[in-house]
């Protein structure tokens, strides 16, 4: 059943991907990318990777569409025809694809218990997590503790990406993402948006609440800082869409976003440094408390909070940067 579902979803995924590449209408491409993301999340879900699926859902459903549209507002709506010959790229791609397909023949079958990935460290993670960290979601344990160093790297990748976008787009004056001409603002538009405004405002507290749940329930169910950050950012973006950028920035000003981005990344690093000062290795949370299990749990909660802060801050900064640029 898993195989059937996965094959069906992957087939639709391939069709959508080909359509995205073929279309010249960039707006249609953005819409199809929305479908692509939904299919991808469903696929991850079918393969039992709920944490990854939740990330894809949190980012793909709202934020990436909004950011793509923000980019579209800055460029043309159609892709330009390129006159170059496409044969050489096609040959390269075909050779690469054939190599990758050939390489998959050596891969063990899906779910094969003798596959190296199930023999190497995975059994150790599964058997030792209850004793060492004592949380039900092993993914969070791997992400936060065993592989804490890699996750720190990811946070800094997000951090760097945010800084890079801010450098490129420059955060000038605040502006509306999809600006209306001023005289239309008083007459048209908003009056017709009464129902979305009421429903949207009703949903915002639930979105933020759900984000906090994902943040703090990550040790027990699917979730964690990355997903929670994206969901909370989506809630604030919804507010910005309904009420305008100025009011969203009044609620959560750019200076606060900067504090969140830098503070989140710093919090993560500081936890590691404190571990070293208390006599352990970098990011070895066992020393944080007298009881090593409690120390591990405390460490994971702290670094997840850092991740959540940094991701929310970066996503919202990028959103505001696009908005400021679209108005200028």
């Amino acid at each position: 059943m898993t195989i059937l579902l996965a094959v069906f979803l992957l087939t639709m995924l391939v069709i959508t991907a080909v359509a995205i590449v073929r279309t010249r209408d960039l707006f249609a491409a953005v819409m199809l990318l929305g479908i692509f993301s939904l299919l991808m999340a469903a696929n991850f879900f079918v393969l039992d990777a709920a944490d990854v699926a939740l990330t894809e859902a949190a980012v793909g459903a709202g934020i990436s569409t909004v950011l793509f549209l923000g980019a579209l507002a800055l460029t043309a709506a159609r892709e330009r025809e390129s006159g170059d010959s496409r044969w050489l790229p096609l040959v390269v791609v075909v050779i690469m694809a054939a190599t990758v397909v050939y390489a998959t023949f050596d891969k063990p079958a899906l779910g094969d218990p003798n596959a190296p990935v199930h023999q190497h460290v995975a059994p150790w993670y599964l058997s030792e997590t209850p004793r060492l960290i004592d949380i039900p979601n092993v993914v969070t344990a791997v992400l936060g503790s065993y592989r804490g160093y890699d996750t720190l790297g990811e946070v800094f990748v997000v951090f760097t990406a945010g800084i890079a976008v801010l450098f490129l787009l420059g955060s000038g004056r605040p502006g509306e993402l999809f600006s209306r001409p001023p005289d239309e603002l008083s007459t048209g538009g908003l009056k017709h948006h009464l129902i979305p405004r009421v429903v949207g405002k009703l949903l915002i507290p639930f979105i933020i609440l759900f984000g906090l749940y994902v943040q703090f329930h990550g040790e027990y169910g699917p979730g964690g800082g990355f997903q929670a950050g994206a969901i909370i950012a989506a809630g604030v973006i919804l507010y910005a869409l309904l009420e305008g950028e100025t009011r969203a920035l009044a609620a959560l000003p750019e200076s606060a976003l900067k504090v969140m981005v830098i503070g989140g990344a710093l919090l993560y690093t500081l936890v590691g440094v404190v571990c070293m000062l208390m006599g352990g290795n970098f990011l070895d949370y066992s020393v944080l408390s007298t009881n090593s299990v409690a120390g591990q749990q405390l460490g994971i909660i702290l670094i997840e909070a850092g991740v959540g802060l940094a991701v929310t801050g970066v996503l919202l900064s990028i959103f505001h940067a696009f908005a400021a640029r679209a108005t200028a």
Partner: peptide, 15 residues
């Protein structure tokens, strides 16, 4: 794993 469905139910609307 229903959390995923809940996330979509809340966020889809924004796009």
């Amino acid at each position: 794993f229903l959390d995923l469905a809940l996330a979509y139910a809340l966020i889809n609307f924004i796009g």
